[in-house]
Design a protein around this nucleic acid. Sequence first.
DNA 1: AAACATTTGTCCGTATGTATA
DNA 2: ATATACATACGGACAAATGTT
Lengths: 220, 220
Amino acid sequence: MPVPINHAKPIRISAKENAFNQLQQWIIDGTLRPEEKLNDTELAEALGVSRTPIRESLQLLEVQGFVEMFPGKATQVTKVKKEDIIDLLPPLAALQALAAELVVPNLNEHIIRNLEDMNERFSQAIQIENYFAALKLDEDFHQIIIDAANNPYITAMVATLQAHVRRLFYHNSIVLTTHSIEDHAKIIKHLKNHDTTLVSKIMRDNWLNAIEEFYSRERE
Amino acid sequence: MPVPINHAKPIRISAKENAFNQLQQWIIDGTLRPEEKLNDTELAEALGVSRTPIRESLQLLEVQGFVEMFPGKATQVTKVKKEDIIDLLPPLAALQALAAELVVPNLNEHIIRNLEDMNERFSQAIQIENYFAALKLDEDFHQIIIDAANNPYITAMVATLQAHVRRLFYHNSIVLTTHSIEDHAKIIKHLKNHDTTLVSKIMRDNWLNAIEEFYSRERE
DNA sequence: AAACATTTGTCCGTATGTATA
DNA sequence: ATATACATACGGACAAATGTT
């Protein structure tokens, strides 16, 4: 059997990029707890690299709002507060709605089929109560629209906001409901009709509703 | 004479932050030209620091989209393309419109007065044809609203988008017109009336109109 | 093709400044 | 309050990778 050649990523992955991805994942999933103090020497040892790529990664994570650096004093993981969802979702909703508007003129069969397929898989994940997978598939559904909108600024901003939302959801054991399946179906329907106004509105409301969903699922 | 104590900034400004601010300014105003190759050793000498803070600054500038890094090969200033305005303004308009919506419940006399004052100064700058100052005052006007919206995610994203817009305007000698004065007045009026829907719409249209303004001022 | 020059990515030592006893 | 321990910010050197002759 021929060795499969990695065409996709012929470039060497830098230590910095590895460190960044690993640290971000650890912060999102809670391995690195909120307010935990980050010692670059420790992290360097843990990841088997020197302090430099660690420091560089931490600075990027600071820009994204996952760590807070107090120059000369300390570096720590930012807090996770439920109320953050109130700051997080309105801009995310606005950008997702805008992305949906921008997609309309670029629509094609391929995109619609991908959306329908993804929503089907999303629906199945919810039915078998695999909420972890559902969360990921929901993101993938929306990512199709973001990608199709083809706007690098929106792509970058949504990526950061989504990462924060993901972190909040992880830390609060949020699950998505069958309600989302219908929302996705509506979005697809309005996209098919090239109804820019309606798809924008549904998209925005879909995300804003999540604020209430979030609070209604308060610890019981 | 007693030495004036710097109460405002007791914290030491880091070499990294200095380097970052200087490099960003140079890229925006064109001192560092689009597609110029950036040699960190040169920059380090120019700013009188080592390569470390330069490298760190460049990485932050990459996240913001001002430089592009080709790992192992080179680091260069990103291009400035007129068409970028098409990608830039829709999300900026959406976020500014959202900020205006969010401000409405927080409105107070102080904010309104600041806005009126700033628009007055903006108007004067345009009258004496100091378009450089006008550009800055226009940003300040909108910044009042962003600040009052009090949403850290919006603040961060708008700062980056604004920096890109500023760069485009610099490089294309764009000037703001008396039209903007009226837009600002309308925004203030609708804010006073707590008319969330209208202020959002005006704000969005105000920014989107700038796309056409931009192209109508094509080289003559 | 191979050795060279250049530049980047990484490592680690040191000085400055902070917190704690 | 002084001194001690420690973490960070920065500097400078080495190594790996690129492209060049």
